[in-house]
C-alpha cells in the first residue's frame, strides 16, 4: 500500500518570500556579534585533540632501545608508499634480533592516514600532534630515523603545543630535519 505523502502547500506569505528573506538576514546579523573562532596561527597555536594525526615518531624503550624491528608492515600498509626501511641485524644483545638501519619517511608523500600506526605490531611508529613542520626543500622533508626518534623525545611526556614548549616550537622545523 503506497503511502501518500502530502506536500507542503506554500501559503501566500511563503510565496512572497519576503518573510523568509528577513529571517535569513536576521541569521547573518546574529552571527555578526558572535565570538569569532579564528586562531591567529603563528601567534597562537591550536592544540590538537587526542588522536590527531600529525608528524610521525619512532618510539623507544625506557632503556633507549628503538622499538622498531623493521618488519616493514608500515611500509606495506602505506597507501602512499612513503616509508622506506633498510633492515639489519640489531646491535643490541638479546630480545629482538632485527632493527632498522635506515628508516625514512617522505613527508611530502605521506597522507597522514595512520595506517602505519595501526599496522605496527611493536607499537613503534605513532603519529604525533605536531602539524607545523614545513620546510623549503623536498630533501628536508624526508625525515630519517634520528629525526623520528627526536620527535619522540619532544612529544613523549606532554603535548608538544603546551605553553612550555611554545617558544621551542618555532625551532622544531630545522631540528628534526635530516
Amino acid at each position: 500500500m503506497a503511502t501518500i505523502v502530502k506536500s507542503y502547500e506554500p501559503t501566500f506569505w511563503d510565496k512572497l518570500y519576503l518573510p523568509a528573506l528577513m529571517r535569513g538576514l536576521i541569521v547573518t546579523f546574529r552571527h555578526f556579534f558572535r565570538k569569532n573562532v579564528t586562531i591567529q596561527y603563528p601567534d597562537q597555536k591550536h592544540i590538537p585533540p587526542e588522536g590527531y594525526r600529525g608528524l610521525h615518531r619512532l618510539n623507544k624503550y625506557p632503556e633507549g632501545r628503538i622499538k622498531c624491528v623493521a618488519c616493514e608492515m608500515c611500509s606495506a600498509a602505506c597507501p602512499a608508499d612513503c616509508i622506506h626501511i633498510i633492515p639489519g641485524p640489531s646491535p643490541w644483545d638479546g630480545g629482538k634480533e632485527r632493527y632498522p638501519v635506515r628508516f625514512d619517511i617522505d613527508l611530502l608523500r605521506c597522507i597522514f592516514c595512520g595506517f602505519c600506526e595501526m599496522a605496527c605490531p611493536e607499537e613503534a611508529i605513532e603519529l604525533t600532534e605536531i602539524y607545523d613542520f614545513s620546510d623549503y626543500t623536498r630533501d628536508d622533508l624526508v625525515i630519517d630515523k634520528e629525526g623520528l626518534l627526536e620527535v619522540y623525545d619532544l612529544t613523549k611526556d606532554q603535548n608538544y603545543y603546551t605553553k612550555k614548549n611554545l617558544s621551542k616550537a618555532s625551532s622544531v622545523n630545522t631540528s628534526i630535519d635530516t
Partner: peptide, 9 residues
C-alpha cells in the same frame, strides 16, 4: 609470534 622479525614471513 615473531613474524615481524622473521625472514620467512
Amino acid at each position: 609470534l615473531d613474524c615481524s622479525v622473521c625472514d620467512q614471513a
